[in-house]
Lab assay of single mutants.
Amino acid sequence: SEFQINEQVLASWSDSRFYPAKVTAVNKDGTYTVKFYDGVVQTVKHIHVKA
Rank of each mutant, 00 (worst) to 15 (best):
T24C: 14
T33E: 10
S1Y: 14
V23M: 01
F18I: 04
Y19G: 03
E2V: 13
V44S: 03
F3N: 02
A11N: 01
W13V: 09
S1R: 15
I5R: 04
Q4G: 09
V49S: 08
Y19V: 08
V26H: 05
Y19P: 00
K50Q: 10
K28W: 10
Y32H: 00
V49I: 14
G39I: 05
G39H: 05
D15M: 04
W13P: 05
Q4H: 12
N27G: 06
A51P: 13
D38R: 07
A51V: 10
T43C: 07
I47Q: 12
V49C: 07
S12H: 10
Y32G: 00
V26S: 03
N6T: 02
L10F: 11
Y32N: 00
W13G: 10
S16G: 15
T33M: 06
F18D: 02
G39N: 06
A51Y: 09
K45T: 11
D29G: 04
S14P: 07
K28Y: 08
T31C: 05
I5E: 06
G30T: 01
V23K: 00
T33P: 00
V26R: 06
S1M: 14
A25S: 10
L10T: 04
V9H: 02
S16K: 10
S16R: 09
K35H: 08
T43A: 05
D38N: 15
P20A: 08
D38T: 14
P20E: 06
D15P: 06
V9F: 03
D15T: 04
S16P: 05
K50S: 08
S16A: 10
G39R: 05
S12F: 14
V9K: 02
G39W: 07
V41E: 12
F18L: 08
L10W: 13
A21M: 04
Q42F: 11
N6R: 03
K35N: 05
S12W: 14
E7A: 08
D38S: 13
A21I: 05
K28E: 13
V41T: 10
D15L: 02
T33Q: 10
T43R: 10
F36E: 00
Y19Q: 06
H46R: 15
Q4T: 11
V40C: 14
V40I: 11
V41F: 08
S16C: 14
Y37C: 14
P20T: 06
Q8N: 14
Q8I: 15
S12Q: 15
T43P: 01
F3L: 04
I5D: 01
V23P: 00
T33L: 07
S14M: 13
D29S: 01
E2H: 14
Y37S: 11
A21E: 03
Q42V: 15
V9E: 01
V26Y: 07
F36Y: 04
D15N: 09
S14N: 14
A21C: 05
V34Y: 02
A21G: 07
Q4F: 08
A51I: 09
K28C: 08
F18Y: 12
L10N: 03
G30K: 04
S14G: 15
S1L: 13
K28M: 11
Q42H: 12
P20H: 06
V40N: 12
F3M: 02
V23D: 00
H48Y: 14
T43V: 13
F18R: 00
I47V: 08
V9T: 03
F3W: 08
F36T: 03
Y19N: 02
H48F: 14
V23A: 01
W13I: 10
W13K: 15
Q8F: 14
H46C: 13
A21P: 02
D38H: 11
V49G: 06
A25M: 08
K45C: 12
L10M: 11
G30V: 03
D38P: 03
